[in-house]
C-alpha cells in the first residue's frame, strides 16, 4: 500500500465548544485504496463522527485528516454516502433521485444537460446491478424499504466516488433483505474500483463484508483494535455458518463488551 486513501492521525473532535462533549480523541486510522473497512463499536463511540470527519463535513480541532493526498478542510466530493434512512426525495422518480449527485458535483453538473442520455444509461445500468431494473420511473414511496435502500446505494455510486461511506445502511431491513444487500455490496466492491467504509452495529455483517474490521472504544472514541479478516473472496453466504466465522464474530463481540464495560 503506497499511500493510503484516507489517513486519520491523532484526531480530536469536540462538539459544542471547548467544554462540549469529546466525541473522538486520539483517533488513528488508515484506509488503503480499494480496501473494504468495517467500523464497529459500542453505541455512541463516534462512528458517525468518523464518517463526518472523513467526508469533510466536520473539521477536527486537533490532528489531521488526509484524504486522497490532501488535507481535508472542506467537503471532499470524492465520496458517496448512504445512511440507514434512504432519504430519497419523494417528488423525484427513483431515476431522478439517483441522478441528483450529478446535479451537484462540479465535474458533472456542467455536462449533465448535454450528456443526459449517457448519464441516464449509466444510472439504469447501476439499477440493474442492484436488482432494480425497470424501477427507475417509480417514485421512491412506491418501493419497499429494501428497494429504496438499493436505490440509495445507486445514488451514492452514480458519480463514481473513490470512497463510499455507508452508515448502517441495512439497519432497518429484515434479515433476508439484509443478506441480499450484503451480496449486492460485496459484488459492487468486487467489480468496481471503490474503497468502502461501512459503519455498522452488526458484527456478522462486518466480518462477512470487510477486509479489515476496526473496533472503536466508548466515548471519547478511538481505535482499540484492528483485525484483518482472513476469509478468502469471493465469500458466499454459507460462510456465515462456518465455525471460524463465528469464532471471529464472538471475539469481536467480546472486545466490544469489554469496551462498553470500560465506559
Amino acid at each position: 500500500m503506497a499511500s493510503p486513501l484516507v489517513s486519520i492521525e491523532n484526531v480530536d473532535m469536540r462538539y459544542g465548544g471547548p467544554s462540549g462533549t469529546l466525541a473522538v480523541s486520539g483517533l488513528n486510522l488508515r484506509i488503503g485504496r480499494g480496501e473494504f473497512v468495517a467500523v464497529v463499536g459500542p453505541s455512541g463511540c463516534g462512528k458517525s463522527t468518523l464518517m463526518k470527519l472523513t467526508t469533510g463535513l466536520h473539521i477536527p480541532q486537533g490532528g489531521s485528516v488526509i484524504v486522497a493526498n490532501s488535507q481535508v478542510t472542506k467537503p471532499v466530493s470524492i465520496v458517496g454516502m448512504a445512511f440507514q434512512n434512504p432519504t430519497m426525495l419523494p417528488w423525484r422518480t427513483t431515476l431522478e433521485n439517483i441522478l441528483l449527485p450529478l446535479e451537484i458535483v462540479e465535474k458533472h453538473r456542467r455536462r449533465l444537460r448535454s450528456h443526459k442520455s449517457e448519464y441516464v444509461a449509466k444510472a439504469e445500468k447501476l439499477l440493474e446491478t442492484v436488482g432494480l431494473k425497470g424501477f427507475g420511473d417509480k417514485f421512491p414511496w412506491q418501493l419497499s424499504g429494501g428497494m429504496q435502500q438499493r436505490a440509495n446505494l445507486c445514488r451514492a455510486l452514480i458519480h463514481e466516488p473513490e470512497l463510499l461511506m455507508l452508515d448502517e445502511p441495512f439497519g432497518a431491513l429484515d434479515a433476508f433483505t439484509r443478506e441480499e444487500l450484503w451480496c449486492v455490496i460485496r459484488d459492487l466492491h468486487a467489480s468496481q474500483d471503490v474503497t468502502i467504509v461501512l459503519v455498522t452495529h452488526d458484527l456478522r455483517e462486518s466480518v462477512f463484508l470487510a477486509d479489515k474490521v476496526v473496533v472503536m472504544s466508548a466515548r471519547p472514541g478511538r481505535v482499540i483494535a484492528e483485525h484483518m479478516v482472513p476469509f478468502e473472496r469471493p465469500r458466499q453466504l454459507d460462510l456465515l455458518y462456518e465455525p471460524a466465522f463465528n469464532e471471529m464474530v464472538q471475539k469481536l463481540h467480546g472486545e466490544i463488551a469489554t469496551a462498553r464495560a470500560a465506559a
Binding site: 469533510g56 467537503p75 466530493s77 445512511f83 434512512n85 432519504t87 451537484i104 462540479e106 451514492a156
Partner: peptide, 14 residues
C-alpha cells in the same frame, strides 16, 4: 430538511 439529506449533498460539495 433531514440532516442526512443535507449531509449527503454537502459531502458532494453542494
Amino acid at each position: 430538511i433531514e440532516p442526512e439529506t443535507e449531509d449527503v449533498l454537502r459531502a458532494l460539495g453542494a
